[in-house]
């Protein structure tokens, strides 16, 4: 059988020139230009469309108010909101208030992260701890933060502690489970490689598990930091005398709708900038990915 194989003479295939170059079909075979199903879009066009649509929406809003279709008491036009944002930044104390809020968010977030990282890692490394903590954490995690406002006032009064506590409540219980998941996702192979070069469990925890989860942990931080900002308003509505939440809440009392919107926009801008910075950091820190 096999000696036959050796004797086979494979005739050389004639390579004939291609008749005519086949026209390159659109990426998905069908035509359709910009609306081709699941086709990629050049980055520049994508950006232009994103910005363009935002402008169109803002313009539509502006025009509808100017034409008197909607009341400017309820929907002050973007031009006025932006003007107010500028005035509040330049002549009033918006910067200070934003600083206060940012500080609160980062403090609460820092406490959450400092607690969540070790607890999350231990939860995923030792099932005993995980089994004990998971039900409690899952229960608290689903409690809406506003529902805990009265309790936290009873416990802590209306000072700074209450605000930090509420922000912490909103982030810690989410973050600890995310961290536990990140730790669990360290590939088993990594751990076994470490064992077979003589590592002890404590080495594996620091040199392998912690190291391999860093990128996803960073992402978990980025996500929960965003949630922290969403709880900020709730925390600062509770008898606050400073912060962006206070600014917004005060403006509401006097029906300064433009100021309310300016405050909201300020939070959005802070969030956007923070997120972009963190994304860049991620790229830089985890170049090996």
């Amino acid at each position: 059988m096999s000696d036959q194989t050796a004797a086979i003479d494979i005739p050389a295939v004639q390579t004939e020139p291609r008749q005519k170059p086949v026209e390159a079909p659109n990426e998905n075979g069908a035509g359709g230009g910009m609306f081709a199903f699941r086709a990629a879009l050049p980055q520049r066009i994508e950006a232009a469309i994103a910005v363009g649509w935002c402008l169109v929406l803002l313009l539509a809003w502006e025009v509808s108010v100017r034409m008197g279709w909607v009341s400017s008491l309820f929907f002050p036009p973007p031009s006025i909101v932006l003007t107010r944002l500028w005035e509040m930044t330049a002549h009033e104390d918006l910067i200070y208030q934003a600083g206060v809020s940012t500080l609160r968010v980062w403090m609460a977030f820092g406490v959450s992260a400092l607690m969540a990282v070790p607890i999350g890692i231990v939860m995923s490394s030792y099932r005993v701890v995980g089994a004990a903590l998971e039900p409690v954490i899952d229960f608290i995690r689903y409690l809406p933060v506003p529902a805990l406002v009265p309790l936290s006032i009873i416990w802590l009064g209306v000072g700074e502690e209450t605000k930090i506590f509420l922000l912490w409540l909103g982030t810690f219980f989410q973050l600890v489970l995310l961290i536990a998941d990140d730790a669990r996702r360290a590939p088993h192979e990594y751990i076994e490689i470490a064992f077979t070069v003589g590592a002890k469990p404590r080495h594996i925890l620091t040199d392998v598990c912690f190291r391999s989860m860093l990128p996803s942990m960073f992402d978990s931080f980025r996500i929960t930091l965003g949630w922290c900002w969403t709880y900020l308003i709730i925390a600062e509505i509770v008898a606050a005398d400073s912060g962006l939440g206070f600014v917004i809440w005060t403006a509401r009392r006097y029906m300064h709708t433009a100021d309310v919107m300016a405050g909201v926009v300020a939070i959005g801008i802070i969030g956007l900038v923070t997120d972009q910075i963190l994304r860049r950091m991620h790229k830089r820190l985890f170049r090996y990915l």
Binding site: E189, I193, S212, Y288
Partner: peptide
């Protein structure tokens, strides 16, 4: 020593560091 099909080296270490990891302990 183990050699796996995938996840056989640590992505956060350079090739030299990966080899050196074998002697780390």
């Amino acid at each position: 020593g183990m050699v796996f099909q995938s996840y056989s080296s640590f992505p956060w270490l350079t090739l030299a560091e990966n080899v050196a990891y074998g002697m780390r302990y």
